[in-house]
Structures are given as C-alpha cells and as structure tokens.
C-alpha cells in the first residue's frame, strides 16, 4: 500500500442542532463551505479556534468531542489537531494571554528582559496564570514581527518595539 489520504468520516449519531450555539454553528458552517463537501474536516482548525474563543480561551475534552461530532470526525483526530498546534490551550487560561516572542530577532533586541520582568513582577513563569486570573503568560516562537522586535501578542493584537515599561503599561490596562 502506498501513500493515500482520505477524509476520516465517522457518524457520531448526535443531533448537530444541539451542539454549540446557533451563532457558533453558523460561523463554523461558513468555514465548512470553503472546502469540498466530503472534506468537512478541513474546518477543524477554525472550528476549534471559534469554540475556544467562546469558552474563555481553552478547550475541554467535551468541546473537542463536540467539534468531532459536528464535523463527523473521529474524536482522536480532533485531539491530535488540538494538541499539535500551539494556539490551542487544553487547560484553563487567564482572562488574557500575554505571549512574548522568544526567538532570535527578539532575543537580540531584549526579549529576555521582558520575560524576566514579567516573571519577577507578576510572579508567573511561562505557561502559568497570575493568581488573580488576569492573564496567562506564555513564551512563543517567532511571531513574524522581527523588524520591530521585541514583539508581544496580547490576545489578538501585536505590540512591537516593547520595553519592560511599555509592556507593563499594556498589562496594567488589562481587565
């Protein structure tokens, strides 16, 4: 047998109209429509993103199972995807995500100081959430903003050319 790929359709026998909310279903459906009909599973990444956003920034096993059911995929394939890509979180998160780039261009421009500063001032190590639940602190690989290093992705917005002080200001403004 040589290399072959085929969609992994399985029937979960669940009533899809009971999964998620109508808005979320509509959003996922808009993604499904981009792909060939038999390749519904192509929408798994956007579906996980949408569902994660609606769940306070992380995915529970139940939600992954629901995505599997909605897209007629085997649950384990959804787990594979959710655990492979860095932007899915499988544990509860703070209200915000502060992602500091630690790759080479940012390192050369002082990302280490940013990281040390956050660790020191807020008492969180990368991967941890502040005690008040305000934000989860992450080190991430290259954000593709190298010319304005060091860069931080705060929730969905890039902030560039940061210093410990300017990062502080951003964090202070968080709910």
């Amino acid at each position: 047998m040589s290399f072959r790929n085929a969609p992994l359709a399985v029937d979960h026998e669940r009533d899809k109209s009971t999964l998620f909310t109508a808005e979320i279903r509509a959003e996922i459906d808009a993604h499904i429509a981009k792909y060939p009909p038999e390749w519904k599973q192509s929408a798994v990444m956007p579906a996980l993103t949408i569902v994660q956003d609606a769940n306070g920034g992380w995915l529970t096993t139940e939600l992954m199972d629901d995505v599997a059911a909605y897209l007629d995929m085997p649950a384990v394939s959804v787990y594979e995807v959710a655990s492979f890509y860095g932007m899915y979180d499988l544990e509860p998160q703070g209200r915000h995500k502060v992602c500091v780039c630690n790759s080479i261009s940012c390192l050369l421009q002082g990302s280490e100081e940013l990281i040390e500063h956050v660790e020191h001032k807020y008492g969180v190590r990368p991967g941890e959430t502040t005690e008040d639940g305000r934000f989860t602190f992450k080190e991430v690989e290259c954000l593709g903003a190298c010319r304005h290093a060091p860069a931080v992705l705060l929730d969905k917005t890039y902030h560039e050319n940061l210093s410990p002080e300017s990062l502080d200001k951003l964090i202070d403004e968080l709910e």
């Binding site: 981009k34 990444m45 956007p46 993103t49 492979f84 890509y85 860095g86 932007m87 899915y88 991430v140």
Partner: peptide, 9 residues
C-alpha cells in the same frame, strides 16, 4: 479562500 493556521512553524 483563506485558511488560518494555529501556531506551528
């Protein structure tokens, strides 16, 4: 169409 990644170089 666009297709979004999710954090994997």
């Amino acid at each position: 169409y666009s297709h979004m990644g999710a954090g994997a170089y």
